[in-house]
């Protein structure tokens, strides 16, 4: 089993997803099945093959350095669960 209890915990922390205790065992099984299944790729010979970063093979569009102001502070904050004095509000962050 490539994904065990501690791996799931580590990955869940990285992804910031709380896993309910009851779901944990089933999730470990599912993840292992999926990882076991994609492991098939290891059989494919990819020697000297460049990774394909994008199917898009035109050059990247660039824009000129012209500043715009399309959205007011009110719009930016409009959907926020909590805001104050123009700021987004989060629980205290300790540095």
């Amino acid at each position: 089993m490539s994904i065990d209890n501690s791996t799931v915990k580590k990955v869940a922390l990285l992804a910031r997803i709380e896993i309910q205790k009851n779901d944990e065992a089933a999730l470990i099984d599912e993840l292992n099945n999926i990882i076991g299944w994609v492991d098939e790729l290891k059989k494919v010979n990819t020697e000297d093959i460049e990774p394909m970063l994008s199917v898009f093979n035109e050059t990247m569009n660039m824009r000129k350095d012209n500043p715009q102001s399309n959205y007011t502070n009110e719009l930016i904050l409009k959907n926020s669960p909590e805001n104050n004095a123009g700021f987004f509000v989060v629980p205290k962050v300790v540095e």
């Binding site: 660039m62 824009r63 000129k64 350095d65 500043p67 715009q68 102001s69 399309n70 930016i76 123009g86």
Partner: peptide
Amino acid sequence: VASTNWGGEPNSQVELVDCGMPGALPVINE
């Protein structure tokens, strides 16, 4: 395209990319 001016009111120089709105996309400044 948001302005980089220093000292503006909070969250007043924010475009979609800068606040991670759904569907926002980055376009590079030449």
